[in-house]
Computed example of a mutant assay.
Amino acid sequence: MKGQVDLFLGLDETATPIHNAATSAIQSRAQEQKRVFRLDPTNFEAAARTLEASRQYRILRRLLPRPVATSRMAFPGEKLAIIVDTETTGLDHTQDEVIEIGMVAFSYDDEGRIGDVVGTFSALREPSIPITPEITRLTGITSEMVKGQTINLDAIAAFIQPAHLVIAHNARFDRPFCEHLVQDFALKAWACSHAEVPWFDFGFEGSKLGYLLSQCGWFHQGHRAVEDCHALLEVLTAPLPNDSGCAMSHLLTSARKTLLRIWAEGSPFDMKDELKKRGYRWSDGKDGRLKAWFIEISEDAYETEVEFLRQEVYRRDVEPFTQRITAFERFRAAS
């Protein structure tokens, strides 16, 4: 083609390459890299550490569930927590059904240090309606897998009976389904590892379980109940950046707090934007709660919030309906 310059014109491929100090250094580094990255196929962990040491690779290891400690001595002050996850036919706990439940029980202390796994539970259940293709896509569970399967509800009640705390990664979703399945769940304190751990403050760009797990260096078979429970346990155990402890300690701190839920019943319609800007959320009343704007605050912020309502919203003296919310009430369907 006219006008095209042949950049390789005049180069003799058989000629002896020019050597200087720079090219020698490059060749030396290349040879060193070859030695560093010689992988041993019989020792994958050593290979993984070699790649990590190069700072050019980030390795994800397959999550292996912790073994259940069958013979163990309880340590002083030990408590028991249960991680629970459910797979369901839909999002509405009043109509949809649990098709799988998984649980992992483990010991912990008041500082959030996690001890042994002391039990696991996993069961499938055939619902009254066929599982839709969309649910199969999300969960990997088919109608054939659950055919004839039932969940032993007495076994669930016995499994959770000694627990001091129940943890779910989306407790506002899982708790209503669990309580509908076994009423004993309603008697337990609940914590949500999705909503009650400030993941963004610790440098995580998202709070979905799969993302958190990968940031901690693992991967797993997601969206199956007991596998997700094992995954969440490792996420709660993993050390956070900047010597911030582990997520379990922060989760416990949040779960121990008592919040006050203030309802702005009958607030003027033209104040909705101000309420929303201040952090109020709207309840449509369909889940048994009031139909009104509400906010959840710490106990020491109560007087300030009531004064805001009196001065800026109602412009008169009011005593708003207020509820005390602890871990025993949080995340319930009508709470």
Rank of each mutant, 00 (worst) to 15 (best):
R315T: 07
L165D: 15
G266Y: 05
S24K: 08
T253Y: 13
N242C: 03
A301S: 13
F44R: 02
T86I: 01
D116E: 07
M1A: 06
A25P: 11
K188M: 14
N20F: 01
T142I: 06
V5S: 01
E296K: 09
G90W: 07
F121Q: 07
W199S: 14
A158R: 05
T50F: 01
E144T: 10
E303W: 11
A189V: 12
W263G: 06
L232D: 14
V235T: 13
K208S: 14
M145R: 13
L209R: 03
Q4D: 05
V5R: 01
I295K: 09
R316S: 15
Q31V: 03
H164L: 07
L80Q: 10
T16V: 11
E307F: 12
H194P: 01
P133M: 02
M248D: 14
L236S: 09
F321C: 05
R125S: 13
E329Y: 05
F331Y: 15
P162Y: 07
L233V: 12
I295Y: 06
P67R: 11
D174P: 11
D184N: 11
T42R: 04
D184G: 10
E179K: 09
P130W: 03
D85E: 13
S122V: 08
V182C: 15
A105V: 04
R29H: 13
G217Y: 09
I129E: 04
D201F: 10
E97A: 07
